[in-house]
Amino acid sequence: MTGFITDVMANFWAGLGIKLALIAFIVPTSALVFGILEIKISAHMQDRIGPYFVGAWGWIQLMADGLKFFQKEDIVPTDADAPVFKLAPVLVLMSAMAIFVVIPWGPGLVFGDLELGVFYALALSSLATVGIIAAGWSSANKYSLIGGLRAAGQLIAYELPLVLSVVGPVILAGTMSLSGIVEAQVVFGVPYIVVQFIPFVVFMIAALAELSRLPFDMPIAESELVMGYFTEYTGFRFLFFFLAEYAAMFGMMLFAATLFLGGYWAPGIPESMMPFVGPVVLLTKAGLLVFVAIWFRWTWPRLREDQLQSLAWRWLIPIALLNIAVTATLKVIL
């Protein structure tokens, strides 16, 4: 059985096809799973039950919602710029899918082990910004435009702390490849969160801001801007945005789990079981971080635009830069 799998993977084109199909499968699945988890966890945190009709405890709710979105009428507003309007969800979904390529699910279980894995994930997640601005502008709607402009400012401001906070683990590991970073943590003994706690906090804050989740919810701002930059999107285009949001959240938390929490490695697992237990361990760690993200959503009020910007430029960037300096110095000395 494993011989057959390795033979198929050895053929370049068949392996490529299988990998692309797997990524295309992971994105909607993770979006559905984490979407339903968010709905139920939010409900219980707010002392209510949430959807419980569809399926045993409501677990098919989002699949039903997805099917509902598919059969809705495809409305493009008359004044909207149709090509750009249709392109924007594709760009955002593409950048959400791209992170999954470099995450190691087990020793050697990577879709594509790029030597510049960390840099690749950060670069492609910055493509979502262009998609969001295109969505906001092309909707020919005041609220969408305001949401899109707010999103542009916020996403650019928080890209810097995101990139800078990741440099700490890269310096400690000596490589930008994600499987190399996991192996470096195995050699190091403890996951990098122990020695790099401050960059972990900075990364989590910046990741929440990059995903436009509360408390950095200004671009969407449901009580002010209807739905912000995706007000005019209905039907399956809205489904793309929805999938992209949850898939990007899952991807970012997988990324954080790999960089800071040790990825697929857990102590005391024999080598032969690693390819099977590794993905489970990684999913648990990423799931924990997703739970923290969902928890934060219902804990803090929304930050105002100027508070958000001053948090990024005046606090997070200096802290991240200071951390890089200290880490590099200690790495050379020790």
Binding site: T129, V130, I133, A134, L149, V163
Partner: peptide, 18 residues
């Protein structure tokens, strides 16, 4: 190539659109 994507597309073009 990745510097191009991160800097040019992710930041400079966003600045242009802004």
């Amino acid at each position: 190539a990745l510097v191009l994507v991160l800097v040019y597309i992710g930041a400079v073009l966003v600045l242009f659109l802004f």
